[in-house]
Each structure stands twice: as structure tokens, then as C-alpha cells.
């Protein structure tokens, strides 16, 4: 049976060489799914999301001594995941010769053939609308709309003020609604 997750105890164990591996397994188990969906919504492909999730946890493991107990583990992990995702997207844009000003809709090129997507027409349109947003707005929209995260938590992860995040989310929602209505 999996032991109950207690963040305080887990953090203490993470800083002890004798218990850190077992504690880290608990961290992967606890945060894996949340981080996966955060990454997946940005990169679309399951295989890429899987690679990036592994990289996220490897980075966290290799730098565990950098994590300070006064910060929240979730914030720290989300930050690593967001950085990994942004680096990946920049690389993909370069590989596909896509300019920084162009949207990321190229990510959805083969989505209909993707065996790990079974959304209906409306869900596909929503994903198309999201990939047309600027990167930061996409991050904010995904965190707020799908994960229903608090603005304060998003602010800690992205290092942006709550006011700016609210404005970002407002613009993103407006653009998505316009896109969905236009395609209707």
C-alpha cells in the first residue's frame, strides 16, 4: 500500500541521502500526473510530453539540494516543467523553420491521426484556438481554465504579477471565444 503523502516529511526525507530515493518516488507518484497534463497541453504529442516529464523529474532529482524547504515543492516542479516545455517548443520552432511571431498551430498538424487524441470536433477546435495564442497566454489559459489553478499559484510559477495574469487570461479567453464563434 502506498504511504500517505505528507509534503513536510517528504521534503525532510529528500535531504537525507538514506531516504531521498524513496521520498522522490513518492514525489513522482504525487505530482507526475498533474505535471504530465500541464506539459501535454503545451506540446500536444504524448511521446513528447512523456520525454519532457522524464527530463523534468531528472532535473529535479539532480538538483534536489537546490530546493529550499521554505518554497513549495509543487511550484519548484512546475517551474522546471514550464522551462523544459518552453525550451522544447523553441527547439521545435527552429527545427520546423517557424518564426517566433508565428503561432504554434503546427503542433496540431497530425493530431487527427494521433492515437492518443480522441476529442470531438469542438474539442479539436478548442485546441486549435489555444495553439494560436502567444506562449505565455497559452500557459496561463491552460493553468486557469483546465487545472483551475489560483492566480497566486500561477504567479509564483511564472513569476508574473496577478494583475498581468488576469489580463492575459481575459485576452486569451476572448480570442478563443472569437475563434470558436467564427468557426461555428
Amino acid at each position: 500500500m502506498t504511504p500517505l503523502y505528507n509534503e513536510e516529511i517528504v521534503i525532510e526525507k529528500l535531504h537525507n541521502p538514506d531516504t531521498m530515493r524513496q521520498a522522490f518516488t513518492q514525489v513522482v507518484e504525487h505530482y507526475g500526473e498533474r505535471l504530465y497534463w500541464q506539459i501535454r497541453k503545451m506540446v500536444v504529442s504524448h511521446e513528447d510530453a512523456d520525454d519532457l516529464l522524464q527530463n523534468t523529474f531528472l532535473k529535479a532529482w539532480n538538483n534536489i539540494e537546490m530546493f529550499r524547504a521554505e518554497a513549495r515543492l509543487s511550484t519548484w516542479l512546475y517551474r522546471i516543467a514550464v522551462n523544459e516545455t518552453i525550451t522544447f517548443l523553441n527547439r521545435e520552432r527552429q527545427r520546423n523553420n517557424i518564426s517566433i511571431d508565428t503561432d504554434d498551430s503546427f503542433l496540431l498538424n497530425n493530431i487527427e491521426a494521433d492515437e492518443w487524441f480522441d476529442g470531438d470536433e469542438l474539442q479539436l477546435r478548442l485546441q486549435k484556438a489555444i495553439t494560436r495564442l502567444p506562449e505565455k497566454q497559452r500557459l496561463v489559459f491552460n493553468m486557469r481554465y483546465f487545472d483551475e489553478m489560483k492566480y497566486e499559484d500561477i504567479s509564483e510559477i511564472l513569476g508574473t504579477s496577478v494583475g498581468a495574469l488576469k489580463a492575459s487570461y481575459h485576452h486569451a479567453t476572448k480570442k478563443i471565444e472569437e475563434y470558436l464563434l467564427a468557426a461555428d
Binding site: 479539436l124 471565444e177 470558436l180
Partner: peptide
Amino acid sequence: NILEQVGRNTGYKVP
């Protein structure tokens, strides 16, 4: 209602 119609399901799945 357009966003409400779509809901919060992304359509993505995992093995």
C-alpha cells in the same frame, strides 16, 4: 456559453 459547451475535457488520452 461557447467555452462552457466545449467543457474542460481536452480530448487527449494516455496509454
